[in-house]
């Protein structure tokens, strides 16, 4: 059986949730070979988490400068592996970095690329949900090694423990573009937007006051999202924007408060399993896709919901 290469995203060795999803999917396609880029200590931290999802082999692309995001160096190394192992597919997360590497791999390997897949069959036919979830497409790479990026939160991860063989390959980072300084994002206690099971989002209707949104999110253990109107106004960081030019999310539950539901916003959240809406305007288009909608003021509805959830949890 030929190998499926899986690119593992991590932060200082703490692997992203997407890794468990990609490894689960890869198991159904062939023998799994996980690839992680970073230092030996990143590898040590990541191995148990990777083994939990059944990889047969793990390769560390070793570099101390990995945070200089040398996506070209990583792509070069993965391309060489894919050729020497004659892999049949390479799976990467559909994140900014995953797509950058995937694009480079396609050029290097002269292979077809499919982005934002939500599933892949054993014949390597990818399912994509496009145009904001209105159309489902099946497509297949017809030349070369199938390079497929997988949308976070689309595959349900399941464990299958294994004890992988481990290899280390040193890579050198070109210095043509380099980072001169860095201000890491302050990471609160809330889950990451693209990985979250529950998201509470606020829009222009919050009028800049996200407190009721954050309180409801915290009661639910949810991530906080925002419409572009809210991020453009500077009320919430761009990294929380949901929609066409923000994140595409697909949580179990999406609660939109004070968001009208413009087509570009829906494009990023329409495939959420359950959608709940709070909006003053009964005509707001977001109600058309809501499983449960409350016509009302978010400043009274959201706090009442927060209190109700806390009361239930006791």
């Amino acid at each position: 059986m030929s190998e499926i290469l899986v690119f593992i995203d991590h932060r200082n060795g703490s692997v992203a949730k997407t890794a468990s999803e990609l490894l689960t999917l890869a198991r159904s396609l062939g023998e799994v070979h996980a690839i992680i880029a970073g230092t030996s200590s990143d590898l040590d931290a990541a191995v148990p988490a990777i083994n939990k999802f059944g990889a047969q082999a793990i390769t560390l692309l070793e570099s101390d400068e990995i945070n200089n995001h040398p996506s070209s160096a990583i792509a070069r190394a993965i391309a060489e592996m894919a050729q020497s192992l004659s892999s049949k597919a390479i799976l990467l997360p559909s994140t900014a970095r995953g797509k950058e590497i995937a694009g480079r791999l396609a050029v290097r390997l002269e292979s077809g690329i499919i982005t934002d897949a939500i599933n892949v069959s054993s014949e390597l036919i990818a399912t994509q949900s496009i145009f904001g979830g209105s159309t489902v497409v099946h497509s297949q790479v017809s030349k070369g090694i199938a390079i497929i990026t997988i949308r976070p939160n689309s595959i349900e991860a399941s464990e299958s423990s294994a004890s992988a063989t481990i290899n280390k390959v040193p890579i050198s980072v070109s210095i043509s573009a380099q980072i001169t300084s860095r201000e890491p994002a302050v990471r609160g206690a809330r889950p990451e937007l693209s990985e979250a099971n529950v998201i509470v989002s606020g829009g222009r209707g919050t009028d800049g006051n996200f407190a009721p949104i954050e309180e409801l999110a915290d009661a639910l253990g949810a991530a906080v999202g925002a419409s572009r109107a809210a991020t453009d106004a500077g009320w919430y960081p761009h990294s929380h924007q949901v929609g066409q030019t923000g994140k595409t999310v697909s949580p179990q539950l999406y609660i939109a408060c004070g968001i009208s539901g413009a087509i570009q916003h829906r494009a990023g959240m329409q495939t959420s399993k359950t959608i709940v809406v709070v909006n003053k305007d009964p005509e707001a288009p977001i109600f058309d896709i809501a499983d449960f909608g409350v016509i009302g003021d978010l400043f009274s509805v959201a706090p009442q919901a927060t209190a109700g959830i806390k009361a239930r949890k006791g």
Partner: peptide, 25 residues
């Protein structure tokens, strides 16, 4: 380098419950 095999319109989301807030929304 890649080929679309087939496509279909996703089933439209069924309209759900919509209530007006009268103090207990």
């Amino acid at each position: 380098w890649s080929e679309v095999k087939d496509f279909a319109l996703a089933p439209a989301r069924g309209a759900g419950v919509k209530i007006a807030d009268e103090g207990n929304g």
